[in-house]
Computed example of a mutant assay.
Amino acid sequence: MGPTSFDLSLLALSSPGWGGVLLQGLWMSLKVAIGGYLLGLFIGIGGAAGKLWGGPILRDLLEVYTTVVRGVPELILILILYYAGTDAVNQLMGLLGLPAVDISGLAAGIFVIGVVQGAYSTEVLRGAILAVPAGQIEAARAYGMAPLLALRRITLPAMLPYAIPGLSNLWLIATKDTALLAVVGFAELTLVTRQAAGTTKAYLMFFLAAGVLYLLVTLISNVLIGMLEKRARRGMSRPEGAA
């Protein structure tokens, strides 16, 4: 079979088709994307808070973190974090007198994507918080709200409409960044697609199928993000001239 052949039976879910393998790879990609995105969001919340209200040393450290991650190509970061990160954990275990641990590819992938996402989430959330009108926060203080209560009731709900566009872009980036994990042998969608194409020589068909799966994830995500953004913006005035 040539590289441009289209034998749709090869996409069957059961053997000798590879459809089930592709879907399993997609599921692994989604697990890494979801886990990495949530970890990055957690890091971003802490990073944004540290940049806005932390001391000078903490702010400088966070500035170095966000600058390095945003300045170095993601493929290089993934290679560094995947191998150096797992090696550092085992070295630390050795120093503590504990046996080395076998870190799963899933956990390592989530960690890598999370660290990369965290730098971008930090800046998105910091900008969203700064976009909240100062008068709203001052009014909360005037009513005697404690800082944490004002954060929960005023700042976070008010910043959400400003944060959702940036965070939604980061989610879409996370789903595509999982493809970079193929270089370290993690069995996500891109790697299993390459294996299927290499075995059957139907390269065009399998990579088109993988592209369709990634596109479906994006389209479904856009629908859900649109619903979330519409809910977050309810009650807000539309910009003049907006549809």
Results as ranks from 00 to 15, higher is better:
47 G>Q: 07
157 P>G: 08
124 V>R: 08
100 A>Q: 11
123 E>H: 05
99 P>R: 05
90 N>W: 00
114 G>K: 09
106 L>A: 07
134 A>R: 15
101 V>R: 14
86 T>A: 12
132 V>N: 09
108 A>Q: 12
60 D>F: 02
129 I>A: 07
57 I>M: 13
100 A>M: 00
139 A>V: 09
106 L>E: 14
153 R>V: 02
115 V>N: 04
136 Q>N: 11
93 M>S: 07
116 V>E: 06
132 V>S: 07
121 S>L: 05
86 T>K: 12
103 I>W: 07
37 Y>W: 08
150 A>M: 14
75 L>D: 09
54 G>M: 05
48 A>T: 06
50 G>W: 03
58 L>H: 04
116 V>T: 06
78 I>N: 04
65 Y>M: 08
83 Y>F: 14
61 L>W: 03
35 G>M: 02
58 L>A: 11
135 G>S: 13
116 V>A: 01
108 A>L: 06
149 L>A: 15
75 L>I: 15
109 G>I: 06
117 Q>S: 10
113 I>F: 00
49 A>H: 09
125 L>G: 03
109 G>H: 10
132 V>A: 05
62 L>A: 00
66 T>H: 00
137 I>G: 12
146 A>G: 15
119 A>N: 02
141 R>E: 15
46 G>M: 07
62 L>W: 01
121 S>Y: 08
121 S>F: 12
105 G>N: 12
142 A>K: 13
100 A>I: 00
124 V>C: 06
128 A>W: 05
121 S>H: 14
42 F>A: 13
61 L>R: 03
73 P>A: 09
141 R>K: 15
137 I>H: 10
139 A>D: 11
86 T>I: 13
101 V>W: 08
37 Y>E: 03
133 P>V: 02
36 G>D: 04
39 L>H: 04
82 Y>F: 15
50 G>V: 07
41 L>C: 09
49 A>T: 14
126 R>N: 03
99 P>F: 00
53 W>C: 12
104 S>F: 10
113 I>E: 02
73 P>W: 09
50 G>A: 12
36 G>L: 00
